[in-house]
Design a binder for these strands. Structure first.
Lengths: 209, 209, 209, 209
DNA sequence: CTGTAACCGAGACGGTACGTCCGGTCTTATA
DNA sequence: TATAAGACCGGACGTACCGTCTCGGTTACAG
């Protein structure tokens, strides 16, 4: 997706000096770096962003209406593509999805995006809405799709609420990554979660596993 | 615990006019009301708090070092006591715990506390640490205790990681309450989560349930 | 005249910390110095004044609505008192008045005030109006008074327009000080002007002088 | 004098599209109109001039280094030719010169030029220097020439400083036109000034007039 | 009962950032 | 090459809060 398309110049024929893409990149990179370095979005000011990127404030306001809109584009520039699913069996696809989530929880960039997007949820709902639409919703749709296929193929109980099933898988990972930032995300976590959730916690499972 | 003890006057013999407890309550109540009305902690300023409570700024700074410390006391004043557990069987105790979580997710006060505490996690880790220690940790300990008892009583597989088990139960509720604020928390949700998690998602459960 | 009276606090009873007179003086002194150093009023910004005086911008805006109003107070602080007139004869009084004008044209402070006040005449007429009322008008009234007394005492033709007479005396001095800043104001200039103007330019004056 | 000559194209052989003289006139006319309408030179910006004239900013900067240089050309375009002197007697010639000065003080164009040129004296001395050389100096030379001739022909005292005599004549007119913009310049003013200055202010003039 | 010390409200203080506007320079497409 | 348009960096605008400070006035304990 071209960034320019989302913040178009007002009208039709292009006249005058065009906006510099280099400047645009410098601004977005600057914000990215600052967030990555632990500066929260609330602490960021347009003034500081401009100073960091060596850019006039007007140059930023010409493109975005404020740091919130800018942050949305930063998220877009950072989030990786959807993971490729092997498609062999539901269990393995779920592991891939959760492993992808784990990786993003470990990466400082995507992690910082998530934390800051969520932190601004109350003060500027637009940010969280955009983050949700661009990042959360696609992965969620993917997960539901995998579960639906699993149900069709007999790998999943047919009487279970798919939304709830998805939350049971994603919840433990998010809880650790988002709400307990001191928690670790060890290597086998994705498999462990998927298998435990599929198996259930009842002790009577003699034949399974 | 007396609030006054946590923000003591500097030294020994009490001289001069004592601090007014009424003023103290007015300040905390004011902050509570503002947060409840959708004003985020980031948008709050000591200036505004003082105006709202009809109080001088110095009166606030005399007691707390800033709005973060003040917020911690607000949280303390708001959070209810731990729920009482029937203790009959693990499943019912878990339902009570999750139901308690659901209620707190529905209550505007406690919900606002959680959201704001988490939103400030990055910018002021002290807030989240205090919230965690005062609110999260006790409930978490309670949950782990219930699970441990269940394991001992044969209601829970012995080979499951208790931390993970707890996250599987709490995760879906928190995911909905915290990360998807548009999601509903319908009435039977606690039972539904507990039962589905205990049962697992595998289809082969002909005899169980 | 007390400066405080001209920029009063909004209402009646004095509450809160009173405004610092030291800060007030520092600001006015700072502007004075800058103008004296050749910085024109147009080049001055409130930002710069604040930086120079080591003062916050709000501290300036709390007292004055902008640099124009501030300048008016600077003028008030700089202009010296009216000269004392010997009152023996009209000719000597006129010399004293013109000598006073010459001195003020030579002094960098008063000279800078005049030039800047006049330069802003078009862009902010309030400045020139205030300067005129505070500085020009009193001296002019003084001059007219002296001339009127001279007319009464037979030292001045009775058929001459007093306004014009005053302009004839003051004009040459101002022309040199204001419109031809490279011109000198040599020591005997006041006497020379007064005597030449009184005497006239016609050659037939054999007996006089 | 061709205006183009004073702002030449950089070098030798003329290549590419030639500069439009219509554009040049439009710019100068625009500035003239703005000044005449009471907009001070300090309030003018190249940006605004360009907008008014419907011209790109670069088109202006290609010809002049800034609004100051442009203003000098505007002055050149506005100032009328020197007055023709009858040459019969000094007194009448002086009246013609002062009447010419009065007319220019009454005309909005020339008056605006003078005020703005003088207002910018401090901030951009080049403007006043140019104005002085182009407008003031020639008239002044003319006046001194007339006085010198009058001295030779016995119409003027030989012991008077010609520079001072000139200032005595011009001063009252300028004082009113420049420093007291509310003052009127009534019809017979030129004669009144000349006659009063020649005659002097002493009452003993029984035979004269 | 009187000092006196800490309290209280208000608001001034030096700063920082806000979002807007305009300065002069630079860079494009078009003529 | 000239032109009109407009992006570029920089900097001032006047406002809002920041956290500290300094007022006049209040309150409650100690002597």
């Amino acid at each position: 997706m071209s960034l320019a398309e989302s913040r178009p110049r007002p009208d039709g024929p292009v006249r005058g000096r065009p906006r510099s893409e280099a400047v645009e990149r410098a601004i977005i990179e600057g914000v990215m770096k600052l967030l990555e370095d632990g500066v929260s979005l609330a602490e960021l000011s347009v003034e500081r962003i401009a100073r960091t990127a060596g850019v006039g404030k007007a140059t930023i306001y010409r493109r975005w209406s404020g740091k919130e809109e800018l942050f949305i584009d930063v998220v877009r520039a950072v989030e990786p593509a959807d993971p490729e699913l092997p498609g062999v069996c539901m269990r393995d696809d779920l592991v891939v999805l959760l492993e992808n989530l784990r990786q993003r929880g470990l990466a400082s960039r995507t992690s910082a995006m998530l934390h800051n997007a969520h932190a601004q949820m109350k003060s500027s709902p637009r940010i969280w809405a955009a983050y949700h639409a661009n990042v959360v919703a696609p992965r969620r749709a993917l997960g539901l799709e995998v579960l639906r296929r699993g149900q069709r193929d007999g790998e999943l109980r047919t009487d279970v609420d798919l939304e709830l099933a998805n939350d049971m898988l994603v919840g433990p990972m998010l809880t650790r990554a988002v709400l307990r930032p001191d928690a670790e995300l060890p290597e086998g976590l994705a498999e462990q979660i998927v298998d435990t959730v599929l198996e259930g916690l009842r002790p009577v499972r003699s034949t399974a596993s």
